[in-house]
């Protein structure tokens, strides 16, 4: 047996690596990048089909740090959802992976985020959520909790935007929350997001060690470790593998995607139904009121049409259409522009 390991499409893990990170050592975003590399490798994403798209921020720089071969698009602050929409519409065979920050998504880009969800654009959309603007040196973001403290002691007086709650409210078809430090939970959720057809929103708490990891911050490593409430322990089974997991019936919720892959949600100590929109909103509100951070797959609907389906687009990627597919025929043309006198 050869010693080099390859994934289901025969590629070694190194293919999924990118340029060395230029972020601060210990930054949560770097951990997410590592988990992403693992998930992309395990899922067997073809590099040429991957479109890595982002806005602006420390988080938005990360597409440079994985799958170097793939096309990347580090666009404008808060405007990645529209560019991702254009890219997916142009070529529906692309796997669109959007990476954003809490500033990028919850402030300047809130409008585009909402409308991308309404349209159910088929993409995986990650928010690397550190409760602050890392790249502009630590100002509060709109996801900072009321009462949380900046490094200089300033207290946030404004209510936090809960991106998962908002996404569910807007009709999102896949909403999950996780933590950059929890690869066990995050990797299967990422893989499930790739398998999902529609907008898969992942809000990932990702501490900023430089500006927001002190006592008084609710997005620090210590705080999250202490307050995280996981709904379940997810497992992801790709389409080509059989489910041979050692679980007892009734202890696992099995969700099947279009492509035949599964996400298995192992019950922890509570009953949780991720197909129940209202239930999901309740859990988000209840846990937040208790100062807890609920993680896991909060909501999923695998039956909804995505944007390409709703627009009844041809299965052929639009980029491949040629003159003969696109121009009006000569006969129709002469009728269309016939002289009227």
């Amino acid at each position: 047996m050869s010693a080099t390991h390859v994934n289901i499409i025969g590629l070694p893990r190194d293919v999924y690596k990118g340029l060395p990170t230029t972020l601060c050592a210990g930054c949560g975003h770097n951990s997410i990048t590592n988990h992403l590399i693992k998930a992309l490798y395990e899922f067997g994403v073809e590099p040429h089909r991957l479109a890595k798209m982002s806005g602006i921020g420390c988080s938005s720089k990360t597409p440079a740090y994985f799958v170097e071969q793939a096309h990347g698009y580090n666009g404008l602050h808060g405007r990645m959802p529209s560019a991702a929409t254009g890219a997916k519409l142009a070529n529906r065979e692309l796997l669109v992976l959007g990476i954003s920050g809490d500033g990028d998504t919850a402030s300047i880009g809130l409008g585009q985020f909402c409308h991308m969800i309404r349209r159910n654009l088929d993409c995986a959309y990650l928010i690397e959520n550190n409760g602050c603007y890392g790249l502009t040196k630590g100002q509060f973001s709109a996801t900072a909790d009321v009462g949380s403290k900046q490094k200089n002691g300033k207290v946030n007086d404004y209510s936090a935007i809960d991106l998962c709650g908002l996404a569910i409210e807007l009709g999102a078809t896949f909403v999950a929350r996780s933590f950059s430090g929890d690869g066990k939970q995050l990797v299967p959720l990422l893989e499930a997001a790739f398998a999902h057809r529609g907008a898969a929103i992942l809000d990932i708490v990702s501490p900023c060690v430089t500006f927001n990891d002190h006592v008084g911050s609710t997005k620090s490593y210590a705080y999250v470790k202490e307050h995280e409430i996981a709904l379940h322990a997810p497992d992801f089974i790709i389409a080509s593998k059989e489910i041979t997991a050692d679980y007892e019936p009734g202890t696992v919720k099995d969700i099947v995607f279009d492509d035949g892959s599964h996400v298995l949600l192992r019950k922890l100590d509570r009953e949780y139904d991720p197909n129940d929109r209202l239930g999901a909103l309740n859990v988000i509100h209840e846990t937040r009121d208790r100062g807890e951070l609920v993680t896991g797959l909060l909501f999923i609907d695998t039956t909804a049409d995505d944007l390409c389906a709703r627009e009844r687009m041809t299965k052929t990627p639009l980029v491949r259409l040629r003159e003969e597919d696109l121009r009006i025929s000569r006969e129709d043309w002469s009728a269309l522009t016939a002289p009227q006198a």
């Binding site: 698009y73 404008l76 529209s82 254009g86």
Partner: peptide, 27 residues
């Protein structure tokens, strides 16, 4: 099935974004 897609965007920022996403992807 359509050999075109026309999106009524949420504003002109997004309309332009769709154009420069699609143009990048070759459409």
């Amino acid at each position: 099935e359509k050999r075109v897609v026309i999106v009524q965007a949420e504003d002109e920022l997004a309309a332009a974004g769709v154009v420069f996403g699609a143009g990048w992807a070759g459409a």
